[in-house]
Design a protein around this nucleic acid. Sequence first.
RNA 1: GGCCUGUUGGUGAAGCGGUCGAACACACAUGCCUUUCACGCAUGCAUACAUGGGUUCAAGUCCCAUACAGGUCACCA
Length: 482
Amino acid sequence: MKEVRVRYAPSPTGHLHIGGARTALFNYLYAKHYNGKFIFRLEDTDLERNIPHGEASQLENLEWLGIIPDESPVNPGAYGPYRQTERLDLYRDYAKKLIELGYAYECYCTPEELAEARNQQEAAGKFSYRYNRKCLDLTTEQKAQYIAEGRKPAIRFKVDVDKTYTWHDIVRGEISVPGKDISDWVIIKSNGIATYNFAVVIDDALMKISHVFRGEEHISNTPKQIMIYEALNMELPAFGHLTLIVNEERKKLSKRDETIMQFISQYRDEGYLPEAMFNFFSLLGWSPEGEEEIFSKEEIITMFDEHRLSKSPSMFDRKKLFWIDNQYIQKEDLITISEMCTKYLEAELPINSKDEGWLTKIIALFRPQLNYCKEIISLVKPFFEPFNIKDEDLAFINELNGKELLIAIKDKFEKMDDFETEIIKSTIKETGKELSIKGKNLFMPIRIAVSNEHHGGDLPTVLELYGKEQVIANIEKTIKLL
RNA sequence: GGCCUGUUGGUGAAGCGGUCGAACACACAUGCCUUUCACGCAUGCAUACAUGGGUUCAAGUCCCAUACAGGUCACCA
């Protein structure tokens, strides 16, 4: 069997976003499943839209996710260069060849003329524009005349209107588009730079790309690309068009959408684990056989089957991401999680007043409920807030007849030397027994009095973390207000 | 508007003509556990195959139409 070579080819116009990451991921999975190569190529022919560090940023975020290219601009293989702007001459050579073969022709129309033609067609009630082929049969004299006027030609591909372009899409089955629906399109712009649809084909062919998985928006580009392969007598890759990702309102994910975080770097900043993201993305438009949903990267690679790629749009389900990331946070070793969480805490809270043991304990306490590491901040924050109990909570404590309990427990706490979880626990137990209070009635008043919160983790541990002094002070304040 | 797609419960998603009286997961609810919080476990949940026609002994599964949603129609990628 032919070597599997797939690629992810972003344009460096922004950072890696969700859609790109997912496309890259499926290409990567396919490559690794079939022991092939995953290639990273830069499509940077639109000079104006390129942003500085776009390439590095794409690569970095990809690698963070665990998607490591076998060949890339910074780690070239035998098929370089891997940036389109470094391959410009190549495209020109092939374009020239297409002209010689009669598949393409020079077009001297100016943008103004084209706009004019388009307006006319629109005025005539046509929605889709077709180039009028004004330059199709230019004589050498006419060309010379245009050049004398200072015009620079673009090169257009001459579409065979009698042909139908058909391919078997790996995810969608057979798709065909008649040539008559496609206008003669530009392959080389008048500035001498190849257009995307032309450059991809040359690159994919020369880089021996065997399979192309990309977004659904490329379906309509595919016939154009097929024309080039056929004209140049190059071997066609197999195509597979992935579904779009939609947001929780079922709308296509546009880069401006603010309902969900768009960029991988944002997830990284919020402390999601890369393995969890990898797992989550693999489930966006694909499903494994069987009933499990949590898998390691290696397991996903082994199980990956392109025939199980979905045809209908996949929704970015934030809650599911929470759940998956939470699962990975439990699996990851505590030290790693501690380090990540500590980083967030240091940035937001005055935790240097606490020792390392305190930190480890509090992180271990909250780990089971963490959806992503940055969440630790809101969980730990109450420990640093000044005492501030709400009236309704005071009323609630009264309702539970908590005053007597608080007085008793404060007294016991004061007498304790070693303010430690196990002892605190037995003290609470003992007090409960003496006053015959149990369950919620026993724990809630203490919790609210000390932390002013209804939630927060195992109470004895929480109390230890507050420390004896603070606990007693807060209970005292509460009693006074009751 | 042309062309190209898609449409299964609140959400993701299985399902490739009979085993579908439709899995599984998330969410939600209830119960158990821990005298609290959370985790975990168990159970339940929803009157889900867009609509209408075919084809067939048999259709979520094939065909056609309609509706809705999306993609695309550039000297952007």
